[in-house]
Nucleic acid binder design. Structure first.
Lengths: 217, 217
DNA sequence: CATGCATTTTACTCGTTGGTATATCGTATA
DNA sequence: TATACGATATACCAACGAGTAAAATGCATG
């Protein structure tokens, strides 16, 4: 706890709807969303506990009480970051809900949108943030969402086994864990701009998971 | 920051070498290691920032200054947790260093020890702890260790491709990321005692990664 | 121009926690 | 038994950061 907290030079966020001087837009929703987004980025860079609300406010050209005008407390900000990210993944499941395609193909669609979500600004919160930093009530809601996603993956694997598109002796639970792990881990190493896009990563992962390492004779 | 910090009822740690009353053992090393281990467990349960040194001391039937008698500061405790876990993974690589086995088989050995390490008490620190909580110097050392592990995985994949034990059109970098992700993620969901052992998980993962989801005709 | 509401700021409180100065205790050795 | 030193405890400090009260500002409408 010495000089390290002063590292990042508190770069102003160009996406802030509060322009440094005048010209301020309205629309509560927009500003609230901007708070959440800026928070997600700040958390990603410095971590939840190393980001004070004063830091966050400064990035938005604003002071702390302004943030409290749009948000209950710091915990709620984290919760919204969680939720935003997780909802994107859930949207991927919804997209194949009524599809009649084989399980493995529906899984592929989900994996692609999953990768997009994890590589987004909210990826960090979804994956790295501790739900221990949330109150029991909030934590439960997040756990429910995460569990829903997990169950969704397992179901797709099971469907694939049943319709013959996935090898019968795959364990749905472990397969879902392996997939989720590989995908979630993207949040740790992916830097937007550098290397591959989320879609590119997803395609390579899919090839690996579908065909395996062993050369096909 | 309300009542949630009071949740876990501060269970005394039976492995503490300080017995509640008298009968205290010597051996600085042993006690220092006990501090690190208790810290790893506490961090895993409550997170780094939600674990105060007073909490940690209480678990060990001791007061805060005693901890400072064995350790520089809180950051160093986290660093040691990191290092202990990462060293176990590196030991797995060392075990196959001189092996003449094909790449895919050496990779399998590493994966098994990797899974053991991640499922251990130090798994949380390795995977979930933010290196942003470390000073730049410490952070650099951790990053170097992590990078070494990453390069090791890539090398094994490359070796496997060269010796024909791994499919030639695998991307070593992405394959390493997928493997590391699946393995690291174990730290998020695995609860020792429940479900599979680390070895069992590793075997299922290996089967999945080696043979893939697609039914082999 | 006056009124009222939403927005933002200034200036604070207060609990938590990492870290420390200093005293005390226990025990091995001379 | 006296001494010395390592180990542990008591009692503290200072900083930081979440959260708030209350004042000020902007802005739209009558």
């Amino acid at each position: 706890m010495t000089a390290r907290d002063a590292q990042p030079p508190r770069i102003p966020d160009p996406d802030s709807p509060w322009r440094p001087v005048r010209e301020r837009a309205r629309s509560r929703e927009l500003k609230r969303d901007a708070v959440i987004l800026a928070a997600a980025r700040a958390f990603k860079e410095r971590g939840y506990h190393n980001t004070s609300l004063d830091d966050l406010a400064a990035r938005l050209h604003v002071t702390k009480p302004t943030i409290y005008h749009y948000v209950e407390n710091k915990e709620q900000i984290l919760f919204e970051c969680f939720r935003t990210g997780l909802d994107r993944i859930r949207a991927g499941f919804a997209a194949v809900e009524r599809s009649a395609a084989p399980g493995r193909e529906r899984l592929a669609v989900v994996v692609r949108s999953y990768a997009e979500a994890v590589a987004s600004d909210f990826g960090w919160c979804m994956v790295r943030a501790e739900n221990q930093d949330l109150s029991p009530a909030m934590s439960r809601r997040i756990k429910a969402l995460k569990s829903e996603i997990d169950q969704g993956l397992r179901q797709l694997v099971t469907d694939g086994i049943l319709d013959g598109s996935i090898r019968a002796d795959c364990d749905p639970k472990m397969t879902a864990f392996a997939l989720a792990g590989a995908l979630n881990w993207i949040a740790h190493w992916h830097r937007p701009g550098e290397s591959l896009t989320a879609a590119g990563i997803a395609d390579l992962f899919l090839d690996l998971f579908e065909n395996g390492l062993r050369p096909r004779s």
